[in-house]
């Protein structure tokens, strides 16, 4: 089994697990964590693709770098919004998902 395939398989597994967690949880922070794990999984797949016989390919690397920046920025934005939501309502889940 080639390393690239290993990367892809592990990455796919991570994405699948994280997607299940994303769908199952209602706590916003847990969902954010799940999203970040999902992101990591997809980056693994991408990095795996970047390995050629000819050496590393810059395009997937650029994709991953951008993806990481985006993930960090979105997580930060999500946390800011969540903190305001939590401060205003004291709740950790979104209203539609909240089944006490």
């Amino acid at each position: 089994m080639s390393p690239a395939l290993w990367y892809a398989l592990v990455g796919a597994l991570l994405v699948a697990v994280a997607f299940a967690a994303f769908a199952a949880h209602t706590h916003v922070v847990r969902r954010l964590l799940a999203f970040n794990v999902m992101g990591t999984g997809s980056f693994l797949i991408l990095v795996g693709l970047a390995q050629h016989e000819r050496g590393p390919d810059p395009v997937p690397q650029a994709l991953v770098l951008t993806g990481i920046v985006v993930a960090v920025a979105s997580t930060a934005l999500a946390l800011v919004v969540f903190r305001r939501w939590f401060a205003a309502t004291g709740r950790v889940a979104l209203p539609e998902d909240d089944t006490p």
């Binding site: 999203f35 979105s74 999500a78």
Partner: peptide
């Protein structure tokens, strides 16, 4: 805020 969070989660996915 709630709508924005939901929007963000959908957009990220």
């Amino acid at each position: 805020l709630a709508a924005a969070l939901r929007y963000l989660l959908a957009a990220l996915l």
